[in-house]
């Protein structure tokens, strides 16, 4: 279990992280979300004990972190960097040894993982010979080779093709089921929505939203309706139930005001236009994120 209690870190006049608290339970996939410069990297570095917080406490399984925690951590940085001139096997051995693993344990673990990712034949090839996608996989193997209890994944899906991406997601879920705590950082909300149990949304060093994903949706999300129709739909925007409306070429996405009734909306629409599809959807994390950041009065830039 990872626990941050009122953690702050300041660089000069910049509050990189301010009064941040969170709990990530064992076996949970925890989404650390937010735009660039929100303080995600600083937070991750503090949990890995690379930098020390100015204020607050960081506890792992109830005890204050020390350097010995590094043995139990796997880290996949956003920008991938491997030793280009090294052989895949040599590099995995090196990174595994640094995690305190015995050579014989590593040898079998490397074979196992390379086989799982269909990379076994590349074992003695140089990293620079790998394709981008293969290098991504090798990098992922390098951060799980020592069987970490805590795994930090920074944008693990970037650059992967759909098949590899699916496989990566399955692997992450399997690891989480076997008890690994996964801290997952991304700016693509759809991904976080698909796999996270719990999220913390950061902006400008502060926690904006924190909690279980379904509870957040329940509490903060306003219902949305997707309507496909023919006819002049310009009146929809002015209806009393409508909070916000996004027009797409074929349909509109309507965000309803709190406690609005979808039945009355449908009645009003049917009287003026012909409806082909009327779908009630739960709010997307994307919308929650944008509305929360905007409500906070802060500017939010998407990448």
């Amino acid at each position: 279990m990872i626990e941050l209690q009122h953690v702050s870190k300041q660089y000069g006049n910049l509050h990189a992280v301010e009064d941040l608290s969170l709990v990530a339970h064992n076996g949970e996939i925890f989404g650390l979300l937010g735009p660039n410069g929100a303080g995600k990297t600083t937070t991750i570095r503090m949990i890995m004990n690379i930098i020390a917080p100015d204020l607050g406490k960081i506890l792992i399984d109830g005890t204050q972190i020390t350097d010995s925690i590094k043995v139990n951590i796997g880290y996949l940085p956003e920008e991938r960097g491997l030793y280009k001139k090294s052989k895949v096997y040599d590099m995995l051995m090196y990174l595994g040894r640094l995690k305190g693993k015995k050579d014989n344990e590593l040898t079998s673990a490397i074979d196992l993982w390379l086989d799982q990712f269909s990379l076994l034949e590349w074992k003695n090839r140089k990293v620079e010979e790998l394709s981008k996608g293969m290098a991504q996989k090798v990098q992922f193997i390098s951060c799980v080779i020592h069987d970490p209890k805590i795994l930090f994944l920074d944008e693990p899906f970037s650059g992967l093709d759909p098949v590899s991406s699916d496989f990566m997601r399955e692997t992450i879920v399997t690891l989480s089921n076997s008890g690994t705590t996964i801290l997952f950082s991304t700016h693509i909300m759809e991904q976080a929505e698909k796999i996270c149990n719990r999220i913390l949304l950061m902006n400008k060093g502060k926690s904006v939203i924190y909690g279980k994903l379904d509870e957040i949706k329940e509490k903060l999300g306003h219902k949305s309706v997707i309507v496909e129709f023919s006819g002049d739909g310009s009146f929809i925007e002015r209806l009393p139930q409508v909070e916000h409306l996004i027009r797409y070429p074929k349909y509109v996405e309507i965000t309803l005001k709190e406690n609005s009734d979808t039945d009355s909306l449908l009645t009003q629409l049917v009287s003026k236009i012909s409806i082909r599809k009327f779908e009630i959807v739960s709010p997307s994390l994307h919308n929650i994120f944008i509305s929360q950041v905007k409500e906070g009065g802060d500017e939010y830039e998407t990448k």
């Binding site: 880290y75 940085p77 956003e78 960097g81 491997l82 030793y83 990174l95």
Partner: peptide, 16 residues
């Protein structure tokens, strides 16, 4: 190692 970000992986294992 700094520009290729390999240093970040090393830092997750060892002290500077």
């Amino acid at each position: 190692e700094k520009t290729s970000k390999t240093i970040e992986i090393l830092l997750s294992s060892a002290r500077p």
